[in-house]
C-alpha cells in the first residue's frame, strides 16, 4: 500500500489539519509516513502545500516527484491546479470550488472550473456551502474536503473518525462531533 498526496490551499485554510488527520490514521494503522510542510514567510496569505506520503514500506524522499502524486487534495480551486505537474496520469484531483480571493488578478472561476472538469478523475464540491448546511459553520470545510477524498485514501471511515477524535478530543465532544459530521457530509458528496 502506498499513496502520495499533495495538499493545497492558502495559508490559514487548514490543510495541515487535513494532513494531521490522515497522518494520525496512518500511524495508528502502523503505516510509514512522511509529511513535508511549508512554514515561515510563505504562509502569510500566500499559496501553501504539503506533501503527504503514506506507505507500508519505508519511505525515502520527503518530497513527491513530478508525475508521482496519486491525488491532489485542495481546499481552493485555483490552488488545485498549481500542482498539476505532480499529478500522476490517472490521479485524482479533489478540490473545493469556493475561491479564496486575496489578489487583484484572480482568474475567472469559470475558466478554472473548465480546467478542473477537464481532468479525467476529479471531485469538485463547494465545501464551504456543505459545511455551512451540515454543521452550521464554514470552518469545518477542510474536513468536508477530507471526507470527499476519503473514498480514495485506502482507509476505513472509522479509522479517519478515530483520528479526528484523537485530534479534536481536547477541544471537547462538540467539536469532535462537528468534524465527524463534516467528514461524513464530504464523503456523501463524493460518492454522488
Amino acid at each position: 500500500m502506498k499513496i502520495d498526496i499533495i495538499l493545497a490551499g492558502v495559508g490559514g485554510q487548514g490543510i495541515l489539519t487535513i494532513a494531521a488527520a490522515i497522518g494520525t490514521a496512518a500511524v495508528n494503522k502502523g503505516l510509514y509516513l512522511k509529511q513535508a510542510e511549508v512554514h515561515g514567510m510563505s504562509q502569510r496569505g500566500g499559496d501553501v502545500q504539503s506533501n503527504l506520503r503514506i506507505s507500508d514500506k519505508p519511505i525515502h524522499s520527503d518530497l513527491i516527484a513530478k508525475g508521482g502524486a496519486d491525488m491532489i487534495l485542495s481546499v481552493e480551486p485555483m490552488e488545485s491546479l498549481r500542482y498539476l505537474p505532480f499529478l500522476k496520469k490517472g490521479g485524482y484531483l479533489i478540490t473545493s470550488t469556493k475561491p479564496f480571493i486575496n489578489i487583484p488578478n484572480y482568474p475567472e472561476l469559470e475558466y478554472l472550473m473548465k480546467e478542473i472538469k477537464a481532468m479525467d478523475h476529479h471531485v469538485a464540491i463547494d465545501a464551504d456551502q456543505i459545511a455551512k448546511d451540515e454543521v452550521g459553520s464554514a470552518r469545518a470545510s477542510n474536513i468536508v474536503m477530507l471526507g470527499a477524498a476519503s473514498p480514495f485514501l485506502k482507509m476505513e471511515m472509522s479509522e479517519l473518525e478515530d483520528a479526528l477524535k484523537e485530534l479534536f478530543g481536547r477541544k471537547g465532544e462538540e467539536v469532535v462531533e462537528m468534524n465527524i459530521k463534516a467528514l461524513r457530509a464530504g464523503r456523501k458528496m463524493a460518492e454522488k
Binding site: 514567510m41 510563505s42 499559496d47 518530497l63 513530478k66 508521482g68 491546479l81 505537474p85
Partner: peptide, 28 residues
C-alpha cells in the same frame, strides 16, 4: 527527486502543465 533522477539519467513522466491563467499568490 526529479533533479536527481535527471542526473542519474532516469526519465520522469511529469503530469499536465500548470494552466497559463494561474495567478501567483505572493505572501502579503
Amino acid at each position: 527527486p526529479e533533479l536527481v533522477a535527471h542526473a542519474l539519467g532516469i526519465e520522469i513522466e511529469e503530469g499536465k502543465p500548470i494552466p497559463e491563467m494561474l495567478a501567483g499568490r505572493p505572501p502579503a
